[in-house]
Amino acid sequence: MGRSSWAVAAAVPLVMLVSACAQPAADAAPAGSPPAAEALGADEVALRVTHAGGFVTPQSIPSRVPALSIYGDGRVITEGPVAAIYPGPALPNLQQARISAADVDALVRRAVKAGVGAGTDLGQPAVADAATTRFVVTTEGGVRTTDAYALEMPDDAGVLTAAQKSAREKLSHLLAALQDLPKTLGKGAVSEEGGYQATVVAGIATPYTRQPENVVELGAPAPVAWPGPALPGARLNPNVDVGCVAASGDQGRAVLAAAGKANAMTPWASGGKQWSVQVRPLLPDESGCADLAKQE
């Protein structure tokens, strides 16, 4: 496909859950020096940016895709642009590219220098229900994270100190650099751009509900037979009616093929019932539904 998108700015969803804004415990210890990329496994995350919180539906939490994942072997996986249509596509537009080991090292060092994993006080802007930008980096001391609530929102209420603003500005600059790796790393540094080919795909299922009349008038899609493991699968959270199944091999390919022809409103038929399913290709460091259950 043409030029890939490197935009990793948060797109805050619309309904239901507020982010936990405090820094995680991993921030408490200072980050160590970043390891050389060669010391990381091919599927080990060197640097990642995700977005958490905001108002979201329960099933959208585990189906979220990290905005940026950089792996030990230089693979870079991002979510590309999606057509502004309704209903939207059933599959996220995941794109993969590759950078050198030296550039992996450079970006990890840049993240550590920007304060990822340092436990810096970032304050909290007086903004309700914003998303949290989470930076994850692998260092000699292990995996370190930093959460920045409402990172791209202005401090209109003036509640942040000068030090907090400075720390947040460093993370904003890091995010901007990661938004455009070809510009950040230089001409020719990013290669092999194209669609990401997942080997395992998850289906996050909830009972299908009848659509509003205005949606029906647009042409409600006909039910499609679910080609993967029987839905809804095991609950990701015992307190929330959201199930998950994972498909690989022939089943995984069948799910991806069917989802490629479906949209976000497609009802999926399984076990004599209809289900709403969010299809989530798993990333190289993910193996099944248990990995998605950790999403926030």
Score class of each variant (00 low, 15 high):
R110S: 09
A111R: 08
A111L: 08
K113I: 00
V116M: 12
V116K: 13
G117M: 06
G117P: 02
G117H: 08
A118I: 05
G119E: 04
D121K: 05
G123M: 08
G123N: 13
P125I: 00
A126S: 14
V127Y: 04
D129Q: 09
A130F: 01
A130S: 13
A130K: 05
A131I: 04
A131F: 03
R134S: 10
F135K: 15
F135T: 02
V136H: 04
V137G: 03
T138L: 01
T138K: 06
G142T: 03
G142Y: 03
G142W: 05
G142L: 04
V143S: 09
R144T: 00
D147M: 11
A148L: 12
E152S: 12
M153G: 07
P154C: 11
P154R: 07
D155T: 12
D155S: 14
D156N: 13
D156W: 12
A157W: 03
G158M: 10
V159R: 10
V159G: 03
L160R: 15
T161D: 02
Q164N: 06
Q164C: 04
A167R: 03
R168P: 14
E169I: 05
L171I: 03
A176N: 13
A176P: 07
L178G: 12
L178I: 09
Q179G: 14
D180Q: 11
D180L: 08
K183L: 07
L185H: 08
G186M: 00
G186T: 02
G186P: 07
K187E: 01
G188I: 04
G188Q: 04
A189M: 00
S191Y: 00
S191P: 01
E193L: 01
G194T: 15
G195Y: 13
Y196M: 08
T199V: 12
V200Q: 10
V200R: 15
V200D: 09
G203A: 04
G203N: 04
I204K: 11
I204H: 08
A205H: 13
Y208W: 13
Y208H: 07
Y208I: 08
T209L: 09
T209Q: 14
Q211G: 07
P212E: 02
E213W: 13
N214Y: 14
N214S: 10
V216C: 10
E217N: 11
E217S: 11
L218C: 01
G219K: 11
A220Q: 11
A220R: 11
P221R: 11
P223Q: 09
V224W: 04
V224N: 07
A225T: 12
G228A: 01
P229R: 14
A230E: 07
L231I: 06
L231G: 02
P232Y: 10
P232W: 14
G233V: 00
A234F: 13
A234Q: 15
R235A: 01
R235Y: 02
N237W: 15
N237M: 05
N239Q: 09
N239A: 07
N239L: 02
V240Q: 13
V240D: 07
D241R: 15
V242D: 03
V242A: 08
G243H: 04
C244T: 06
C244R: 06
A246F: 10
A246I: 06
A247G: 08
S248N: 07
G249N: 05
G252V: 10
G252R: 12
R253M: 00
A254N: 05
